[in-house]
Each structure stands twice: as C-alpha cells, then as structure tokens.
Design a protein around this nucleic acid. Sequence first.
RNA 1: GGGACCGUAGUGAACUGGUUAUCACGUCUCCCUGUCACGGAGAAGAUAGCGGGUUCGAUUCCCGUCGGUCCCGCCA
Length: 441
Amino acid sequence: MQRTLILNCNNKIGENVMVCGWVSVRRDHGKIVFLDVYDRSAIVQVVVTGELAGDLHPQDVVCITGNVAKRPENLVNLNLETGSVELQASKIEILSKAEELPFDMGGKELDLQLPTLLDFRSLTLRHPKVKAIFKVQEVTIDAFREAMKKKDFTEFQAPVIIPQTAEGGADVFEVKYFNHKAFLSQSPQFYKQIMVGVFERVFTVNKTLRAEPSVTTRHLTEVTTLDAEFGFIENWLDVMEMADYVIKYIFERVGRECGETLKMFGVTIPTVPEKIPMIKLRDAQEVIFKRTGRDNRKEPDLEPEDEREICRWSKEEKGSELIFVTHYPVKKRPFYTFEDPEDPGYTLSFDLIGRGTEWLTGGQRINNLETLERNAKEWGVDLKKSELYLQAFKYGMPPEGGFSFGSERIVMHVLGLTNVREASLFPRDMERVDVRLSTLK
RNA sequence: GGGACCGUAGUGAACUGGUUAUCACGUCUCCCUGUCACGGAGAAGAUAGCGGGUUCGAUUCCCGUCGGUCCCGCCA
C-alpha cells in the first residue's frame, strides 16, 4: 500500500491508508489505546485496540495501516491540525524499537538543563519545540539568500583554510597543513572583498571559526555567518540601508512562515520602524550616562549592560527594538575600516544591536591600496601572506562596504532564547564538541 | 584570562546538623472503549559528584577536587 503523509489524512476520510512515523505519546485505556504518531508533515491520533498496541513506546518507528475516520463533533481536538480526524488502525508494523527515553518527550515543553539538552542532542532535537528553532534558522538563512539575490548579489563559496587571519587578532584555530601552518577562517572578510572585484555584489553563507576563550551565553566557536559585500556605494549609509533591508526581509519571512513557532515561544518579531534608528557611539554613551549615571563616555566600545540599556532607550524613544550604533573609534576596528573624513578618529562602521546584543557588524572599507597597506602596518597585520587580498586593490576596486550577521544570534533573539547554544544544532564551544571535552580525558 | 554561584533517583525540582531524604514526570505491575501531556491503585529506583575536616552525629557547616551554570573581558 502507498504511504500517505499524515497531513493528507484530512482529505482521506473513509479511505484506508498507511502512515509512517514516530510514536510520540501513548494514552492507554486498556482495551482501547490512543497513540499520537507524527511524521514530517503533522501529528495524528491513532486509535488502536490494546492487543494491537502491544508494548509500543514513545519514539518507536511504525507504519500503521488503517481507516481515516471523522471524529464525532464533541471529540474534535482543535489544538491539532488533524484534530477533526483519527486513524483507526488495523495493522501496525514496527520498523524500529526505541529504548526507554531518559526524559519525557511528550510535553509541550522540554524542561531540561542545557548540558542534558546537549548531551542527548540527537534525541532532544526531535522535540517539537526544539525542532522548530531550526526551521526558523532555515527560513532565516533562506530569506537572507533570497533578499540578496533580489538585489542582484551573487553567492560565492569562501575558503575555510586561510594563510593569515583577517582581523589580525590571535583568536584563530591553527591547523597543521602538511609541512606548514595554516588557520581556520574566522571571517570570509578578505574573500568577500576580493569578490567585489569580480561580481560587484556578493554574499556568502558559511562557517566561521573562532578560538576566542569566551564562555558566555552568546558565544560559539563555530558560527554560521551571513556575509554581504558590494561595490560602487555612494557612501557608508548605502551599506547600512542594505543591512536594514535584509534584516526586515528576514523578519517578514520568519513572521509569515513561522507564526506557530513564534506563538509557541511566546514572542513576536522585533518591532522596527520604517528606518532602523542610528546613533553615534559617543551619543549612545551620553544617553546611557544621562539615563543611568554610568559614565563610560571614554570607553571605545559598549559594555554588555550598555548594549542592553541602549536597546531599552531605542525601544522607548524610537519605537525600535533594533538600533545601529555607529562611529566606533578607528583603533577599535580592523585595519580595513574606513575612517570618517568628517569625524577623524572615528570609522564609518556600525553594529546592529537588538534585544541587548550585537547581531551584525558592517561598514565602509578602505579601497585605496596605500591607505590599506599603511593601516595594516600600523595595526601590526602582516599582509605578506595575503597577497591576493592586496592584489584586488592593486588592480582597481570601487568604493565598497559590507556587513556580517551571526545567524544563531538572529534566531536566538527572535525566539527569545537565553543561550545561543540553543540556536545551534550541534554547538561547539570551549568545553564541548558534541561530547563534553571533559569526559574525554 | 578574571569573578560569582551551583552539584539530591533516569529527568526536573524541594527540604533538612538527628531515626524510613520529599515531590512531579518517566519506568514496571494491575484496573479502565473516548483520551489527547488521559485517569486510578500499587511497586521499583538516590551509598545526596568524589576526597578530607569540624561535630556525639554531616546530604546540610568548612577545605580540596572534579563537573556544571552565570557574569565580566572579547566578539557575530
């Protein structure tokens, strides 16, 4: 018999069908047993005799043959997509038995501590509420692609093994590369800039790997970043506008396609006005000082608490849960960042901050070879190994800029998760690569 | 790299310087043909992370150790 998707049972009342999937819940009344069975399309109630139900348990994989019946009016379950029908089983084939589960997977919430959630990742990912996070991730990345393509950007694949770090920082993974030393990419920065010389407008979705010894709720060592870079910009505001467009595009699709998930998490898409507000770093610090008395006006960056405060301000005063903070000091940014000719010492760069943390960094880049080389020297970045990068500027590079989103952070904040690890299928951090590293000693 | 806090059945939590360490979910047995995270009755399951100390007595207080969480620095 042909297999039917559970969702299609709604249209097959009176028909004999076979559905295949996993058992999620068993409600045993003795002579009659109700099973909740789900496949990729939906969940359905299966009515079985006690005899036929045998010792079926949650997560057993089954193929059930039976008759699709309309439920009596008073027994319709409005919480279920297929709640107006049920499958009256005549035959159950067990494809795979599951061992006893370490915790209850049947509830609406999966109330586990983070280490348990990750120790049993293959199983916990199956929980509807956990699974839903990664549909949001999929839509987020897909929406990014779609948004970029609509603006005539070309997608490219950036390398993962690199000869030299883009940021000049120390926090990169070193790899043994035959008889040499190489590094794992902590950003596709150099390559996306090179690619502007090729396709003019480019974007890339890839893994960036960071060896920062940061154990926090918002850091991962393996991140999926959404990068874009484009040439012939009028000025840096073009770059910001593009980022504004992209994030709204993502919000629009997540809002439209993941409504059930948003409801499940009790959240709404962040509210943003027609144009996401912007504020210079110094002005933000002034605002924070006025509001809290905390004086960080001499600092080159915002502290986490400042980021939360400026978000509160933005929401109250500007009606926006996102805000661009601009003009970070030259010294605080990578060597390729464009200095504002009208505000020397500060860059034409920006962070997009939302719901308390950074989502994105972007800005205009230096497209003049001499300035770039001078800066690299001053920053202590040895570009000998990055000849290809300089080459791109040697042979003609228009004014350009770009930005980079952390996709996990977008998903985390849209869903109101308290830890980025929850927004990563298989999160890597200082203490875990699938298994806890401490258990491998 | 710096700091704060936590460690109790499979899971999530509670309590306690004193006799059988509590609850919920899960598991097992029995009852139940309309439940939908079904319900009811019963049972098993924890040498309180580990080591040491204080004490008549420690799961509880102290120290060490291992494991974990959070905050800061840094970043997406």
